[in-house]
Design a protein around this nucleic acid. Structure first.
Length: 416
RNA sequence: GGGAGUGUAGCGAAGUCUGGCUAAACGCGACGGACUGUAACUCCGUUCCUUCGGGUUCGUAGGUUCGAAUCCUACCGCUCCCA
């Protein structure tokens, strides 16, 4: 299968400008493809993984991966369909750029990868140069027709955000010129920005210049919800924000209706192996082999093999044994990935304890959960809100293991 | 600058005319429980805080009233129309 056929089979292709032309360009020598990320937060999340998976496949197909960390575009803000964005402070931007650059470096490695910050060229561009060199080539009439802009004409859009598509167009041209990037990859909402770039390249380099665009379908689960959230929270790629254990569990808990789709999309497994796993989902869904494989593969890609081992060790400890039987050493060894808090060794009321450990947000909620039997301390269910607990009663006086609900764990560390 | 709207709990959205029965309908989300495969679906409960007596809320600040999300005044934000 060629690059495009593979994407189609994986359900990763929404729209492409010229499939045949792209394949031809790829066949005629090493070319680059790029994905841009704006540093809106200090870490990437699962949503970012969507275009990156395609870029990685492009790299694996013999291309060069180029990633723009959008220091300049991030300071402007890609228009959302609903409301104007809040501008980030320069300090926040700098911090975000640093975090994201480090993560991207980890994901793509050194071979056939280039990471650049568009501040390099956009940051130097003077207003008059911008207007003379680029502004003349953009038609307001065309810009107004782009979906995002059109949807914002009712509610209002600032000149700043309106200009965003021009900046992204300049990015594509810049990479086309200096890195031999022929393809831009993005989510389906990026189509307008991508074609802006292609049009700009054609204006500046002639209509025969090779430049292509490719978008990815909006990723949703079988119930139509946007992919990548767990209990309303984003799943981050930063191990400090979302532990590898939680990351692993996110994938392990995917339902049968979605797992094959995600295997195709988020792993590098081949067609035979995925077909085998799909058959397992049909014949023996309870074993959840497909989910497990998915969790292993994606966790390995993002956090590495060791993190997979850790996550599986922890999962095993939490779900297949009696946690009360574990030794203090085993707890220390396995539970590194669980949210933890420090606690004094003095006896405290269960409700106050849960609040102190940030297991619960309010006493009201804490009482409710205790009453409903949702709270387990060191493997022992606690249903009386008046109970006093002694943090140093178990695990050699070092830890208190708290469970809320079926599978949310928290580890209290006794401070000496 | 002129005019018309609008601002309610995490989000959406009733309630405002006809003040008290409203800590505020309903939907979504979230949280907990049952079922199960650490699923999905479905079902049940909870969803401002609380020392469980009560306390503090409906853009903000005042006012009227025994009593205000509901009436009045000013201010702030957002939307649309006119100039």
């Amino acid at each position: 299968m060629n690059f495009i056929e593979d994407l189609k089979w994986r359900g990763a292709l929404n729209q492409a400008t010229d499939e045949a032309g792209l394949l031809e360009a790829m066949a005629n020598g090493k070319v680059g493809a790029y994905v841009g990320v704006d540093p809106t937060a200090d870490s990437l999340h699962l949503g970012h993984l969507i275009p990156f998976m395609v870029l990685k496949r492009f790299q694996n197909a013999g291309g060069k991966a180029v990633i723009i960390v959008g220091g300049a575009t991030g300071s402007i803000g890609d228009p959302r369909p609903t409301t104007e964005r809040q501008l980030l402070t320069p300090e926040q931007l700098a911090k975000n750029e640093k975090g994201i650059t480090a993560q991207v470096t980890k994901l793509f490695g050194d071979n056939d990868t280039t990471i650049v910050n568009n501040n390099e060229w956009l940051g130097q561009l003077s207003l008059t140069d911008f207007l003379r060199d680029y502004g003349k080539l953009f038609s307001i009439n065309v810009m107004l027709k782009k979906d995002v802009v059109a949807s914002r004409l009712e509610t209002g859009i600032s000149f700043t955000e309106f200009t965003y598509q021009v900046l992204q167009g300049i990015d594509f041209h810049e990479l086309w010129r200096r890195e031999d990037v022929k393809l831009q990859i993005g989510g389906s909402d990026q189509w307008g920005n991508i074609t802006s770039g292609i049009d700009l390249i054609h204006s500046l380099e002639g209509s025969s210049a090779k430049a292509f665009g490719l978008t990815i379908p909006l990723m949703t689960d079988s119930t139509g919800k946007k992919f990548g959230k767990s209990e309303g929270n984003a799943i981050w790629l930063d191990a400090k924000k979302t532990s590898p254990y939680t990351f692993y569990q996110f994938w392990l808990n995917q339902n049968d209706a979605d797992v094959v789709k995600y295997l195709k999309y988020f792993t590098f497994l081949g067609i035979e192996e995925i077909d085998d796993l799909a058959r397992e989902v049909q014949t023996n869904p309870g074993a959840r082999l497909a989910q497990r494989r998915l969790a292993q593969e994606v966790t390995k890609f993002v956090h590495g093999s060791e993190a997979v081992d850790e996550a599986e060790k922890l999962s095993k400890a939490l779900f297949s044994g009696d946690v009360a039987e574990l030794s203090a050493d085993q707890i220390a060894d396995a539970f590194g990935g669980v949210p933890s808090f420090d606690i004094a060794s003095d006896t405290v009321n269960i409700i106050d304890f849960l609040i102190a450990g940030e297991v619960e947000q309010s006493k009201r909620q804490a009482r409710e959960d205790v009453k409903n039997g949702a709270i387990t301390i060191n493997g022992q269910k606690v249903t009386d809100a008046a109970v006093e607990i002694d943090p140093s009663a178990h695990y050699d006086g070092q830890f208190v293991l708290v469970r809320r609900g079926k599978k949310k764990y928290f580890l209290g560390k006794i401070s000496k």
